[in-house]
Simulated scan of single mutants.
Amino acid sequence: MAAAVGGRGFLVQPCSLSFVSNKNVLKHPFGAANTCWHVKPAKPQGFARHVAHAQLRPTWLPGLDPPPYLDGSLAGDFGFDPLGLGEDPESLRWYVQAELVHARFAMLGVAGILLTDLLRVTGLLSIPVWYNAGAVKFGFANTETLFLVQLILMGFVETKRYMDFKSPGSQAQDGSFFGLEAALEGLEPGYPGGPLLNPLGLAKDIKNAHEWKLKEIKNGRLAMVAMLGIFVQASITHVGPIDNLVEHLSNPWHRTIVQTLANSAS
């Protein structure tokens, strides 16, 4: 049994009634004796209560008490809000949806950049490096037309998403999406479903799909950090991520981020 005094712990020998004499001394075969202490269990207070709370509620910084408005109910909530941006409940709802969308775009972006860069480096496709892809001229349409089409399509989708955020379920009503509402089958704001957007039928019970939500947001946050790294990498080295990886593997001890930053500064 352990006890805590002033933030320090020590062990207390448990008592066994069948081996305790009137003097509360335990006799050992080798002549040693241990005093038996009767300890009454006490409620955890102060430091002990905070330690137990920290173990039950993981935070981004161990031992840090999360803000009261981040109670752990949100997927990926580790109490990180140093600027207090989520104090307003409505703002917090919007930030959750915004992070989710950015995470999904980042995952698609990282996968697209790595795949196309791998095809380019291996010579399977003759395509430009990813940051020059937007300057490519296509024969079937000019750049202005493609930009206008993209603006209309993205604007339509984002408008529908915003309307569903403001009034959950409103975009699933009959006739609200050219008769395709049943094929989309929105689960809740930010989590559309149906055979088009959820062909494998994962997390149909979205209210109890905390593990799936947690996995998605963790991978999305990792992808956002990866996208930032790819941006900085391209700005400094002026090549794609696969080229940087090949160069690093050719001489791992001398072609690292430290040497790269040092050479770029000189």
Results as ranks from 00 to 15, higher is better:
124 L>M: 14
87 E>L: 08
51 V>F: 03
43 K>E: 11
32 A>D: 11
144 E>N: 10
9 G>Y: 15
106 A>L: 04
215 K>N: 11
21 S>A: 12
106 A>Y: 00
61 L>P: 00
116 T>M: 15
70 L>T: 03
102 H>S: 15
92 L>Y: 09
40 K>L: 13
190 G>I: 00
107 M>A: 11
67 P>F: 02
173 Q>F: 09
15 C>S: 13
74 L>D: 12
46 G>S: 02
81 D>E: 00
150 Q>T: 12
89 P>I: 02
72 G>M: 01
195 P>T: 03
151 L>H: 14
87 E>K: 15
20 V>H: 02
3 A>H: 12
185 E>N: 15
206 I>R: 04
190 G>N: 05
178 F>D: 01
144 E>I: 14
14 P>L: 04
248 H>A: 08
205 D>S: 06
24 N>A: 09
177 F>I: 05
104 R>S: 13
171 Q>V: 12
204 K>W: 05
120 R>G: 05
62 P>A: 01
145 T>L: 15
46 G>Y: 00
54 A>L: 00
239 V>C: 05
135 A>M: 13
57 R>E: 01
244 N>H: 08
223 A>K: 00
97 Q>E: 14
170 S>L: 14
153 L>W: 13
181 E>Q: 02
192 P>Y: 05
139 G>H: 05
50 H>G: 09
113 I>R: 01
54 A>T: 02
253 W>N: 02
139 G>S: 11
177 F>C: 09
244 N>D: 11
37 W>D: 02
39 V>C: 01
133 A>G: 11
54 A>W: 09
144 E>Q: 14
101 V>T: 14
183 A>M: 13
32 A>C: 08
121 V>K: 14
51 V>C: 05
261 L>P: 02
208 N>I: 04
217 I>F: 01
92 L>E: 02
62 P>D: 02
252 P>M: 00
153 L>I: 15
57 R>T: 08
224 M>S: 04
174 D>C: 13
216 E>D: 10
223 A>T: 02
90 E>G: 03
109 G>Y: 08
188 E>G: 00
101 V>G: 06
67 P>L: 06
118 L>G: 14
81 D>T: 04
2 A>V: 12
19 F>Y: 11
222 L>P: 00
194 G>I: 09
19 F>N: 10
126 S>I: 01
136 V>E: 13
20 V>C: 15
195 P>Y: 02
81 D>Q: 07
81 D>P: 03
79 G>D: 07
92 L>K: 08
167 S>M: 05
42 A>C: 05
171 Q>A: 10
206 I>K: 01
77 D>Q: 04
130 W>C: 12
7 G>Q: 05
218 K>T: 12
209 A>F: 01
184 L>Q: 04
132 N>L: 10
140 F>N: 12
250 S>H: 06
155 G>H: 03
54 A>G: 04
114 L>Y: 08
